[in-house]
C-alpha cells in the first residue's frame, strides 16, 4: 500500500515536471496551453464555417469540442508511445515500476486537457448552453473510457517502439489520416448516410459524437451504442497490459 502511494507520488512529480518544462522559458508560459487550441480553433473556424456553419447548430461549439478532444488524443498517444524512449535514463538507471512512465506522460497531456476544458466551459456559458449534471457525468464517463483506450495504446506502443523504431513515423501518418476519419472539423451529418457506417468503424467517431450529443443537445446516447466502446477500451487495456508486462522485463537492454 505504501509502495503504491510512493509510485503515485513519482507519477505526479514526473507529470508535473513535464508540464512545467513544456512551457518553460516561453514568454507566455502556461498561457500557451490555452492559446494553442484557441488559435487552431480560430483558423479552422474561419475556413470551415462557410462550409459547415449552416448545416448544424452551434458549429463553433462543436468545432471547439472536437479540437480539444482531438488534440488531447493526438498528444497523449504520441507522448505515451515515446515515453519509455524519452525517459531511457530512468528506465536504465532506476528500478521504479515501468508503468509509471507512460502513465505520467498521459497525465501531463491530461493537465493540458483540463486547462482546455476550462475554456470550453467558458464558451458554453457564453453561448448560453449549460448541460445538465447527468449529461456532464455521462460525458465524463465517456472521457474515462477514452483515457483507458489511450492508456492501453500507450502501454502497448511504448514497449514496442524500442524494437520497432518506425512505429513513431507510422503513427504520425496514421494520426493525420485518423483526424479526417473522425468528425473533428465536420459534423457527421455532412457525410452521406450510405457511407456513415464506415466512419463508425473508427471508435473515435462515436466518442466525439456522443460527447457532443450530451453537451450540446443534452441528449443521452443509447446504452447499446456505448457498450462496444467499453469493450474496446477494456480489450485495449488488457492487450496493452499483457504485452507491456511481458516486454518490459528486457526493456532496459533495448534502450
Amino acid at each position: 500500500m505504501q509502495s503504491l502511494r510512493h509510485h503515485l507520488e513519482i507519477l505526479r512529480t514526473l507529470s508535473l515536471t513535464d508540464f512545467k518544462l513544456r512551457y518553460h522559458g516561453s514568454l507566455l508560459g502556461y498561457i500557451w496551453a490555452l492559446l494553442k487550441p484557441l488559435l487552431i480553433f480560430c483558423v479552422l473556424y474561419l475556413v470551415f464555417q462557410f462550409m459547415f456553419g449552416s448545416q448544424v447548430e452551434y458549429y463553433a461549439l462543436r468545432l471547439l469540442t472536437g479540437i480539444i478532444l482531438w488534440s488531447f488524443f493526438a498528444e497523449a498517444t504520441n507522448a505515451g508511445m515515446n515515453s519509455l524512449m524519452q525517459r531511457a535514463n530512468i528506465v536504465t538507471k532506476l528500478s521504479v515500476p515501468r508503468w509509471i512512465i507512460p502513465l505520467a506522460s498521459i497525465a501531463t497531456s491530461a493537465l493540458s486537457l483540463l486547462i482546455n476544458l476550462g475554456i470550453l466551459v467558458l464558451f458554453f456559458m457564453g453561448n448560453g448552453k449549460i448541460p445538465s449534471v447527468g449529461a456532464l457525468l455521462y460525458a465524463l464517463a465517456l472521457l474515462v473510457l477514452l483515457f483507458v483506450i489511450i492508456i492501453g495504446f500507450s502501454l502497448l506502443t511504448s514497449v514496442l517502439l524500442p524494437r520497432f523504431r518506425d512505429l513513431g513515423q507510422i503513427w504520425e501518418v496514421l494520426l493525420n489520416a485518423l483526424m479526417y476519419a473522425t468528425p473533428v472539423i465536420y459534423p457527421i451529418t455532412a457525410i452521406p448516410e450510405s457511407y456513415r457506417g464506415w466512419f463508425y468503424l473508427n471508435p473515435l467517431t462515436p466518442f466525439f459524437e456522443h460527447i457532443r450529443l450530451l453537451l450540446i443537445e443534452n441528449k443521452y446516447p443509447a446504452m447499446q451504442e456505448v457498450m462496444p466502446l467499453g469493450t474496446i477500451a477494456l480489450a485495449t487495456l488488457f492487450v496493452g497490459w499483457i504485452v507491456f508486462n511481458t516486454l518490459q522485463r528486457t526493456i532496459a537492454e533495448q534502450l
Binding site: N89, I90, K93, L94, V96
Partner: peptide, 9 residues
C-alpha cells in the same frame, strides 16, 4: 536504493 547513477532525472 534503486539508483545506479547520481542525479537521475
Amino acid at each position: 536504493a534503486p539508483f545506479l547513477e547520481l542525479g537521475v532525472g
